[in-house]
Each structure stands twice: as structure tokens, then as C-alpha cells.
Design a binder for these strands. Structure first.
Length: 896
RNA sequence: GCCGUCUUAGCUCAGUGGUAGAGCACUCGCUUCACACGCGAUAGGUCAGAAGUUCAAAUCUUCUAGACGGCACCA
């Protein structure tokens, strides 16, 4: 069989279709029903999203595990799906409606709006799932779920109703984070901070009733003064002691408000007097509660001033109102000063609008019990176990300890509408359905709560709701739930450990009694070339699809897997190119192995037969088995980068650079035994690589002769032949062969030293020379046994073996391990000065090491306290260096 | 303010107590019949700085500097 001259990723990537059509991704492809299960749920991507590098990274890591375990014979499920992304979808549909029809959601009504959102989802929501097929993700599409699927929605209602009934969900009036652009409340975790250096601190004079004096307050948000219902000072602040209890004549608002004393006030900050606006500031709200102050809400849902702000301000945007308030204060002579002030503003994570703290009635999940559940799981079972573990467990625990109640209602139409109904008196009835609610209400007419739940509320159930759990809706147990929960591992980004991971732990434990997963692989962030997180505004993003087109999916995957687990990575095209070259290298190595292989075929390795094979064969097999064992070990602890490094070095250095070169003549001459053996080694190595480079390995594997059932995992007997269902090599220790490794090491050392002499002496590769080697009889036997390969790879005409060197003065020399020496007579070619310098350099290097060794060995406490084998190893090394130095010194003298 | 991470060859990064590693880039040499996305051979690092623990520190402890992340506060 003749392969194309270079690997073409596009062709190989066509393999996905076959895999999917044959059902290879479903756990049921494994016919052994008693096989252990292995499961992963995908962190559901936002249904409006398209694939970014973070996905590509996480999906690669999940797919590597999934393919690895599937090949090991597990009943393996990687479950795909998307979440409904409340705000994002809502925004897309609103925008579409405005653009296409010039209408607002209110114009078409809720039902129609939701219908259009579903249309939008059907039409555009599969972008990312299609992109996942390109990635090679071996997810079971037959089990794909969406957080708003009927079953999952029943699960959401079940959990809500249960939590409500036991008092863990409540409705209450609180200061919440309000986004005036999205017109919805946000949870604390959806609010980010932004520091602005151009902020201002405004000092306003408030007239004190019955006097001509004023009291100055400092504020960053003067417009909220319209909603002030008190001014507070510290009770122990002597400056203001006599003002406590007096009234302020609040300018512009024409109201009187009291001066109160509260410990909250820091006398040292600003003027020591604080305006109190209970409806627009969380701290002021608490002060208001303590003092029974009125809560005056100033703004509407869009952040515009309402009637409570007074006729002069009603309808103004909050920032326009600020300007106007300041202008009025100035006119009235009540603006004392404006200071520059660095301010930190709360920002809506999605739309970057400044969040307005606002008093509002919302639904909350009480976090006391939830926190205790998560902490108990963490402290009891150390679950989740984070990889890498160092920082995450502590951060996670600390965060849990300070957890506040979770705002779960959202003022949107797209999502899970809250299963709460109200009668005319405002009594609330929480139930699975309207009918049940009405029953509870004694048959009264009811109106359902207009809000929907936070998308993360449904995502929090993702470890069990996709397996069929519906709770009060009926199913609390299903075959999939039994088999696949707990899942084995969650692979996700650092940024959603709190937002999602913690909630999965709480909700899964509470509602199923099981943990959602034991391990969490925390990925780092893929940064742009500028070292900053990729973002649209920075325009430093790298599109994975472009990378797939440019370098191939396999190269992109293995590059992403080569990053140390959890570390951030600065994107670098040069590195991905390394792996594109790697793919091509493997392609060409296979191409070579298939030359003249007409009578060859893949076979299992037989220890008895192997033991009589040549050292090079036993060596490569030993290296393959050791690499296999190490790759498994690395993957067990999610050390992907270690596995990649092992594979890279096995393929490139051991297999291509040495083994193929050593066997070249035999292969090209059509030796069927040699071809069969090298193909068998290659076949196992391809299997080992498959989880990382699925397309390349499948493409090549299919071309190997005789990849028969005998090599397959017995669990997949009736499946089509595919590498993805072949057995994953464990690394059979019976083939570990230290003797062969030593032998080949000696051969490699000799060849390398000869090449070094050739290069340093500037001798053309076309010139062949005689190589003399002196050494003990063991070494001579080894070199004699590998004479042909040594001659070929060292480009030598003759190999002369003896127990001591006997060569002309005009020779270049080098020392080998084990007291051996190599010499090359170079009459007419040698530059004596250069040779002296070359030998002196070698002595100098040895001397550096010798000095260090002498230092250590002459240290009495080292010899006394260090392990004996350590000391002995250094002594042996010292003896060898001394022997080699002596030989080199003698070589220099022999040149004179 | 609190907590945490990072600082290793020109670049991007591995390496958790025992002689500093990789890829790319650089230098030299190769149309060697699988591969120039290649082959061969070199060169390049007082492991951010300081102190400490230890026979032994890139690795453990403390401090300092710089970069970054999370949390809290912010009238």
C-alpha cells in the first residue's frame, strides 16, 4: 500500500461521520453489560454560543478521557447538551424582533415571544454541537439534552417545589443587583467590578432645620439624594453629637429627614456624615431596617427616575439626574466641592452596564443547609477532588463559608417560569402545575409568577437531570441514573467553580443522596498572543475552527492537551505547528513501514518468540511497553501533558530516529518478519495515541494489514473495526528488557560519538572512514552484533574491534561509557589543533563535573548521612570520569 | 485590606530534595531512496532577589520585588 506523501487532516476528519453513524459513542456499543461504567457530563455550553478555545481545551480533555476509558473496556458515556442561556437568548430575540419588525416583546406578548425564542433555538442553537463534531468529540448524541427539555424542566420544578416546601426557597424584599439594560436582577456572581480613576466624590450641604447651618455629606451618587430618608453620624462623633435627633430640610425633594446615630458610620471617612438611601444601597438598607426608615424607590426598571424623584426629575436617566442634581445644588449654593476619587463600580458581567443596587422583591435560595451539605462533602470525602489540587480546595471552602443567599428569579420570559401562583390577595401557592396550585388555593383563580429562574438553577441539576430524574414529577431512579451517577470527573474552567461546581455538589447530594462527581479537572485560561484573556473587545481571540483548518484538528487537540493541567497558556501558533509536524511525522513513519509489506501482518507479541529477537527489536518493544504504562499512569492523575510528552518522544525519538533507522535495510528489502514486527509495534503505538489524535490514528490504523479481531477488546466483538474500540495498551511488563535497553544505549552512544567527530572535524557525509573501538568483551560483542547498523548510521566503511586502541597518530578519538574508546584514523583529513581543542573541551566538561563530585564526596556529613546507594553512585561516576579524563589526556599527548 | 498563583535557555513552557529539560528560534553541516512539516551535530540558564532549614534546595520555610487571579470594602 502506498500512502500520500503528506498527512491531509481534512480527509481523515471525514471519519467522524462513520463513527457517529455506527453508534460507537454510545455506551451500549460495549456489549459486556457487567463492564464498569465511566461517565462525564459536558459543562453545557450556552446555546447561543459558538466554539471558543476554552471549549476546545475542555472538550479535548474530556474526549481524551472518554476515548481512553472506552478503549479500556468501560461502558463509557460522555453526555452532551446545551443550556438555555436565559439573558443571552432573550437579548438575541429582542434584537431580532426590533430589527425585523420594529416591535418590542410587549407588542407580541409573552407566549409569542417564547415561541420565537424556541424558533431561534432550533435555527441557531446547533452551531456549537456541529462544531463539536468537527472536534472529534465522542459524545453520545442520542442522549443529548437541553436544560429546557420537558423532563429537565419537570426536574427544575420538582427541586423548586421541594426547596420551597422545606423553607429553603423564599420570596423577599432585598437590595439586589439590577441591570437596567437587561431589566433583570442578577446574582452576586454575575456582577463584576471595574475600577475607574475618573470617579468623583461630591460634597453636598444639607440645611439643618431651624438653623442657618448646614451638614455636609459626601457621596459618589448624588442623584440618590432624592431618595434619602435620613442622615447618619457615628454616635461617638463629638462634632455631631448635638445634631442627633434634629431634622434636615432635604433640598430639591422638599422633605424633612432625621439625623440619626449609627455605628455603621466611619467618622474618619469623608465628612463623617452619611446620607442614607435605604432603597438603593445595601448598607443603607440595613441602617434603614435598624431605624425604621422609609424606603423610597427612585428608579424604574430601565434606570430612569420615577415619580418618587419628583416632577423635575421624573423620566431622566440616572446619570442625567446626577448632572441635574449637581447643577441645582450649585445654584442653591449647597455644593461644597467635587473631589477626584477612584471608584469601583459594579458591572453586569454580560452587557457591562453599571449595575443598580435596588430594593426589590425576589426569590432566593437560602444557603445555610446548602453550604453545610457542600462543606460536609468536602470535609468528609474531600469531594470534589480538584486537579490540580493546590489552590482550589481552600478557595472553594473559604468561599462556601462566606456564602450568601442566592437570588434565583430573573425578569425574563425565556427560561423556566417560576412555579408559584398568586391569588388576588397576593397569597402564594407553589406547586408542580397550575392545577395543583389551584387545588391548594381552594379552586381560586390564580396568576403565575411572571419571572423565570436563573439559568444556573437548572444547570445545577445537570449531574442528574439529564439521566432522567424528575423528582416529584415521577422519576427518582432510572437505569441511566443508576449506571452513570456519580459521574467520574468534571472538566471545567476555574471561573465557574463557585457559580456551577459548588451548586452541582449541593443540589445533587441533596436530591439524589449521591455526589455528582469525585474529581474536578480545573482548566486554565487560554490567553491571546498578548497574554491577556481572549475577548472580542481586545480582538485577541483565536478561533479554533481556523486552527482546525490551518493545522488540523488532531494537531490542535494534542497541543491543547500538552498544556500543564490547570495552567494558563499563551496562545502560540509555533507550538501547534510542532504537533502538525508530529502528525506528519507519524504519517510518514507509517508510510515507510508499509513499504514492501505485502506479506506482513499485525500480530500479538509472544514473549517466547520475542526473547530470541535482536536487541533493537526487544529494545523498541520494551520502550513501547514502558511508555504505555507511563501514559496510563499519567492519565490516571490527569497529567495530560506528561502523556503527550511521553508519546511525542516515543514516536519521534525512539521509533523514528532510532528504531526505523536501525531496521531500514531489512524493511526496504521486503523482510516480512521485520515488517510484521515493526507494524505490530506501530499498531500498538497508534492505539496509545488515539485519544489525543483520533483522526490521524484511525486513518493510519485502517491501512495496516491484518488488524483483526484477535487484537480487539472483547467487549466490542460485533462492532465495526475501528481503532476507537481497540484495546488500550496497558504496557505488558513481560516485555520490559533492561539488557536490550543497555545494549541499544551503547550502540546509540557509539554512533553519536562518531557523528560528533565527523561534524566537528568538518568531514563530508560522503566520506566513509574506518571506526576503531576498544572495549571489554561484552561491549565488543554488542558492537559486533550491531555492526551493519553501526556502519550504516555512522557512515563508516569498517568497524575494527579490539581490547586496546592501535591507530595512527593522525586519528580523532572519543571516550565511551564502560571504559571504551573510539578512534577514527583521518590521515590527511585531521586538523591537529582542532582535535586538541575538541579533546580539551571534553576534558573541561568532565572536570566541571569532577569538581562537583569531589566537593560532595569530600564532605564528611554527606558521606555519612546521604543514602549509601547515592554515595556509591557518585563514587562510580567519579571513577568513570577519571578514567575518561586520563584517556583523553593521553589522546592529546599522542597527537604530539 | 484578605487569600492565592506565577516569576526556569532569545520565545512559549515542563520539571515538588540528589549531576537543570522540551518545542520553536539561533549556529554549523546535509537533495542519506518515509518525512525539508525533514536528517545530523553544536551552542545557549548563578532556575526573579535575599535569608533560613538540610549532608544536599529550581524544588521546603520566611521576607522583598514584579505580574496575575479570587474575595471583601468602597459615604
Amino acid at each position: 500500500m502506498e500512502l500520500a506523501k503528506a498527512f491531509d487532516p481534512k480527509t481523515a476528519e471525514g471519519r467522524y461521520k462513520t463513527w457517529e453513524e455506527n453508534g460507537f459513542f454510545a455506551p451500549e456499543i460495549n456489549e459486556n453489560e457487567s463492564a464498569p461504567s465511566y461517565s462525564i457530563v459536558i459543562p453545557p455550553p450556552n446555546v447561543t454560543g459558538s466554539l471558543h478555545m476554552g471549549h476546545a481545551l475542555q472538550h479535548t480533555l474530556m474526549d481524551v478521557l472518554t476515548r481512553w476509558k472506552r478503549m479500556q473496556g468501560f461502558r463509557t458515556l460522555w453526555l452532551p447538551g446545551t443550556d438555555h442561556a436565559g439573558i443571552s437568548v432573550q437579548r438575541k430575540v429582542v434584537e431580532q424582533l426590533r430589527k425585523d419588525e420594529g416591535k418590542s416583546p410587549l407588542d407580541i406578548g409573552r407566549d409569542e415571544f417564547v415561541r420565537r425564542a424556541w424558533d431561534w433555538k432550533e435555527k441557531y442553537g446547533n452551531t456549537i454541537t456541529e462544531q463539536m463534531r468537527r472536534e472529534g468529540a465522542s459524545v453520545d448524541w442520542s442522549r443529548q439534552r437541553f436544560t429546557m427539555d420537558e423532563d429537565l424542566s419537570v426536574a427544575v420544578r420538582s427541586v423548586f417545589v421541594s426547596l420551597y416546601e422545606e423553607g429553603n426557597i423564599y420570596r423577599g424584599l432585598r437590595i439586589v443587583n439590577w441591570c437596567p439594560k437587561d431589566k433583570t436582577v442578577l446574582s452576586d456572581l454575575e456582577v463584576k467590578e471595574e475600577t475607574r480613576k475618573d470617579g468623583k466624590l461630591y460634597h453636598l450641604r444639607y440645611p439643618i432645620k431651624g438653623t442657618s447651618a448646614t451638614l455636609t455629606v459626601a457621596t459618589t451618587r448624588p442623584e440618590t439624594m432624592l431618595g434619602d430618608t435620613a442622615v447618619a453620624v457615628n454616635p461617638s462623633d463629638e462634632r455631631y453629637a448635638d445634631l442627633i435627633g434634629k431634622m434636615i430640610e432635604l433640598p430639591l425633594a422638599n422633605r424633612e429627614i432625621p439625623i440619626i446615630a449609627d455605628d455603621y458610620v466611619d467618622a474618619e471617612f469623608g465628612t463623617g456624615a452619611v446620607k442614607i438611601t435605604p432603597a438603593h444601597d445595601p448598607n443603607d438598607y440595613l441602617v434603614g431596617e435598624r431605624h425604621g426608615l422609609e424606603q423610597l424607590l427612585l428608579m424604574d426598571e430601565a434606570g430612569r427616575m420615577n415619580a418618587a424623584a419628583g416632577a423635575d426629575f421624573e423620566g431622566l436617566d440616572r446619570f442625567e439626574a446626577r448632572e441635574k442634581v449637581i447643577a441645582r445644588f450649585e445654584e442653591l449654593g449647597l455644593l461644597e466641592k467635587i473631589e477626584d476619587y477612584e471608584i469601583t463600580l459594579p458591572i453586569c458581567e454580560r452587557c457591562k452596564t453599571i449595575v443598580e443596587p435596588i430594593l426589590s422583591e425576589q426569590w432566593f435560595v437560602k444557603m445555610d443547609e446548602m453550604r453545610d451539605i457542600a462543606l460536609a462533602v468536602m470535609r468528609g470525602d474531600s469531594v470534589p477532588h480538584f486537579f490540580p489540587q493546590v489552590p482550589h480546595e481552600k478557595v472553594y471552602t473559604t468561599w462556601l463559608e462566606g456564602l450568601k443567599d442566592w437570588t434565583i428569579s430573573r425578569q425574563l420570559w425565556w427560561g423556566h417560569q417560576i412555579p408559584a401562583w398568586y391569588d388576588d390577595e397576593g397569597n402564594v401557592f407553589v406547586a408542580m402545575t397550575e392545577a395543583e396550585a389551584r387545588e391548594k388555593a381552594g379552586g381560586k383563580e390564580l396568576r403565575q409568577d411572571q419571572d423565570v429562574l436563573d439559568t444556573w438553577f437548572s444547570s445545577g441539576l445537570w449531574a442528574f437531570s439529564p439521566f432522567g430524574w424528575t423528582g416529584k414529577g415521577g422519576v427518582t431512579d432510572s437505569p441511566d441514573l443508576d449506571k452513570f451517577l456519580p459521574t467520574d470527573v468534571l472538566v471545567t474552567g476555574r471561573d465557574i467553580i463557585f457559580l456551577w461546581v459548588s451548586r452541582m455538589v449541593m443540589l445533587t447530594k441533596k436530591f439524589t443522596g449521591k455526589i455528582p462527581f469525585s474529581d474536578v479537572v480545573v482548566t486554565g485560561t487560554v490567553l491571546g498572543k498578548d497574554g491577556k484573556p481572549m475577548s472580542k473587545s481586545r480582538n485577541n481571540g483565536v478561533d479554533p475552527i481556523e486552527m482546525f483548518d490551518k493545522f488540523g484538528v488532531d494537531a490542535t487537540r494534542i497541543y491543547l492537551a500538552s498544556i500543564a493541567t490547570g495552567a494558563d497558556i499563551k496562545w502560540n501558533d509555533l507550538l501547534i505547528e510542532t504537533y502538525r509536524n508530529f502528525a506528519n511525522k507519524i504519517w510518514n513513519a507509517t508510510r515507510f513501514c508499509l513499504l514492501n509489506s505485502d506479506n506482513a501482518s499485525i500480530r500479538p507479541f509472544d514473549p517466547a518468540a520475542v526473547s530470541s529477537m535482536a536487541a533493537a527489536d526487544r529494545w523498541v518493544l520494551s520502550r513501547l511497553m514502558r511508555t504505555s504504562q507511563a501514559v496510563n499512569k499519567a492519565l490516571e492523575t490527569y497529567q495530560y501533558h506528561e502523556a503527550v510528552s511521553l508519546l511525542y518522544h516515543f514516536f519521534w525519538d525512539d521509533f523514528c530516529d532510532w528504531y526505523i533507522e536501525l531496521k531500514k535495510d531489512e524493511i526496504t528489502s521486503g523482510d516480512a518478519e521485520a515488517s510484521s514486527f515493526i507494524l505490530s509495534v506501530l499498531e500498538q503505538a497508534l492505539r496509545l495515541l488515539h485519544p489525543f489524535m483520533p483522526y490521524l490514528t484511525e486513518e493510519l490504523w485502517q491501512k495496516l494489514p491484518g488488524v483483526g479481531n484477535s487484537l480487539h477488546n472483547p467487549a466490542y466483538v460485533s462492532a465495526e473495526q475501528t481503532i476507537m474500540l481497540a484495546d488500550f495498551p496497558k504496557g505488558d511488563e513481560r516485555f520490559f528488557d533492561s539488557a536490550a535497553e543497555n545494549e541499544v544505549s551503547a550502540v546509540i552512544e557509539l554512533i553519536t560519538k562518531v557523528r560528533n567527530i565527523r561534524a566537528e572535524m568538518n568531514i563530508s557525509p560522503s566520506i566513509k572512514f574506518v571506526v576503531h573501538v576498544a572495549g571489554n568483551s561484552d561491549l565488543r560483542d554488542i558492537f559486533a552484533a550491531n555492526e551493519e547498523q553501526i556502519l550504516k548510521l555512522a557512515r563508516a566503511s569498517e568497524l575494527v574491534l579490539s581490547d586496546s586502541l592501535s591507530v595512527p597518530k593522525a586519528s580523532a578519538k572519543a571516550v565511551l561509557s564502560g571504559g571504551a574508546e573510539v578512534a577514527i584514523p583521518l590521515e590527511g583529513l585531521i586538523d591537529f589543533a582542532k582535535e586538541r581543542e575538541r579533546l580539551r573541551n571534553q576534558i573541561a566538561k568532565l572536570n566541571t563535573e569532577l569538581e562537583r563530585l569531589n566537593g560532595q564526596l569530600s564532605n564528611a556529613s554527606f558521606v555519612e548521612k546521604a543514602p549509601a546507594e547515592k554515595v556509591e553512585a557518585l563514587r562510580e561516576r567519579k571513577a568513570e570520569i577519571e578514567q575518561q579524563t586520563a584517556a583523553l589526556t593521553q589522546n592529546i599527548e599522542s597527537l604530539d
